Measured scan of single mutants.
Amino acid sequence: LQAFIKTLTGKTFTVEMEPSDTIENLKAKIQDKEGIPPDQQRLIFAGKQLEDGRTLSDYNIQKESTLHLVL
């Protein structure tokens, strides 16, 4: 599935991932794409901060969901 990552500066980019991917995997993909170390990334979806060990499906993240990236 493709999801949108929106930063506080208003920049939006897309990442490809599977519902079974962990938040940790997602942070690694963001690092590959944007060069931001995972330990500096905080991802917010539906008002909740996402925990590394959980999966996208745990948070009911669907295709074309928008996640907010806070540094």
Rank of each mutant, 00 (worst) to 15 (best):
A28V: 11
P38N: 06
M17S: 04
E64S: 12
I23P: 01
Q2H: 12
L50T: 03
T66I: 15
T66L: 11
E18W: 13
D32A: 14
N25C: 10
Q2M: 14
L8N: 14
I61H: 04
K63L: 08
L43P: 00
T12Q: 08
G10L: 03
F13N: 00
K63R: 12
S65D: 14
R42N: 10
S65T: 10
A46R: 14
I23K: 00
T22W: 04
T14M: 13
D52G: 06
T12L: 10
D32M: 14
D39P: 06
S20D: 12
F45N: 02
T55Q: 08
T14N: 05
F45G: 02
T7W: 07
Q2T: 15
D32Q: 14
K48P: 02
L69F: 06
I36F: 12
N25Q: 14
G10D: 03
G53F: 11
L26E: 00
F45S: 03
Q49V: 15
Q41T: 03
G47S: 04
A46F: 09
K27H: 01
A46P: 01
I36C: 04
L71G: 06
D58E: 11
G35T: 02
K29C: 04
E16G: 07
D39C: 11
G10H: 04
K6T: 13
E64W: 14
Y59K: 01
N25V: 13
E24L: 15
Q2S: 10
T9G: 13
P37I: 04
I5P: 01
T12K: 07
E51C: 07
D58V: 03
L71N: 07
N25L: 13
V15E: 01
I30Q: 00
N60P: 04
E34N: 09
I36S: 04
K63S: 15
Q31N: 09
S65M: 12
D39T: 10
E64H: 14
A28F: 12
L50A: 02
G47W: 04
N60D: 09
K48F: 09
I30W: 01
E16M: 13
G10I: 03
T9K: 12
Q49W: 13
I36G: 02
S20E: 11
L69S: 00
D52M: 05
D52R: 03
N25W: 10
Q31L: 10
L56A: 04
Q41G: 02
V15G: 00
E18R: 14
A46G: 11
T66C: 06
Q40F: 09
E24Y: 14
K33H: 12
I5L: 03
V70R: 09
E16W: 14
E51D: 08
H68G: 04
E34R: 08
R54Q: 08
I23D: 00
V15T: 02
Q62G: 14
P19K: 07
P19I: 11
A28T: 09
A3L: 15
Y59E: 02
R54N: 10
L26G: 00
A28E: 09
L43E: 00
T55V: 08
L56F: 08
T55W: 05
K33I: 15
I23F: 02
F45T: 02
P37A: 09
R42C: 11
A28L: 15
L8P: 14
P38D: 03
Q2N: 10
H68L: 15
R54M: 12
Y59F: 04
P19G: 08
K6C: 11
Q49G: 06
T55C: 05
Q40W: 10
L67T: 02
E64L: 12
I5T: 01
S65C: 06
K63P: 15
K29W: 06
Y59W: 02
A28M: 14
Y59P: 01
E24S: 13
A46V: 05
R42P: 00
D39A: 13
G10R: 04
T14E: 06
P38W: 11
T22N: 04
T55H: 06
Q41D: 00
Q40I: 11
Q62Y: 11
L43V: 05
N60A: 08
S65A: 13
K63T: 15
Q62R: 10
A46Q: 15
A46T: 04
K29I: 09
T66M: 09
L43W: 02
Y59G: 01
D58A: 05
S57D: 09
F4D: 03
T12W: 10
A3D: 02
L43T: 00
L1A: 05
I36P: 03
L26W: 00
Q40G: 05
D58Q: 06
L71P: 07
K6S: 10
I44C: 12
K11L: 09
E18G: 10
T14H: 07
L67N: 02
Y59V: 04
F13A: 01
M17K: 00
Y59A: 03
I30F: 02
T22G: 03
K33W: 07
T7C: 10
G53P: 06
P38L: 13
D21E: 09
I23R: 02
D39F: 10
A3R: 02
E64A: 11
E51H: 07
T7I: 09
L8Y: 13
M17R: 00
T7D: 06
T12A: 07
I23G: 00
L8D: 13
E18M: 14
M17F: 15
P37S: 08
V70S: 08
D21R: 02
R42G: 04
M17N: 02
I30S: 00
P38Y: 13
N60M: 10
T22Y: 06
R42A: 07
G53N: 12
L56Q: 01
R42K: 12
Q2V: 15
K27Y: 02
E64K: 11
L56D: 00
Y59L: 06
E64Q: 10
E16L: 12
V70E: 11
K6H: 14
L67F: 07
E34S: 15
E18K: 13
P19R: 09
L8M: 14
R42S: 09
F45Q: 03
D32K: 13
V70C: 08
Q2W: 12
Y59I: 07
K27T: 01
T14Y: 11
K6P: 02
T9N: 13
T66R: 07
Q40H: 13
G10V: 03
T9S: 13
L50G: 01
K48D: 06
S20V: 05
T14Q: 08
K33Y: 08
P19N: 08
E64I: 07
H68Y: 15
D39M: 09
S20F: 11
K11Y: 15
T7H: 06
E34K: 08
V15W: 02
T12P: 03
Q41S: 03
L71Q: 07
T22P: 04
S65V: 15
G10K: 03
E51W: 04
G47R: 03
L1E: 04
F13Y: 05
F45E: 00
K6N: 07
L1M: 11
P38T: 14
P19F: 12
P19Q: 09
I36Q: 02
P37N: 06
V70W: 11
F13W: 05
P38V: 15
I44S: 10
D39E: 12
E34T: 15
H68F: 14
E24H: 11
K48G: 06
L56P: 02
H68E: 12
Q41K: 00
F4W: 09
A28G: 08
Q40E: 10
P19S: 11
P19T: 09
L56M: 08
S57G: 11
T9C: 13
G35F: 04
E64N: 15
N25A: 14
V15Y: 03
K63Q: 13
L8A: 14
D58Y: 15
E34Y: 14
Q62A: 11
L56T: 03
D39G: 11
N60Y: 07
A3F: 15
L8C: 15
A3C: 15
L67K: 01
K33N: 05
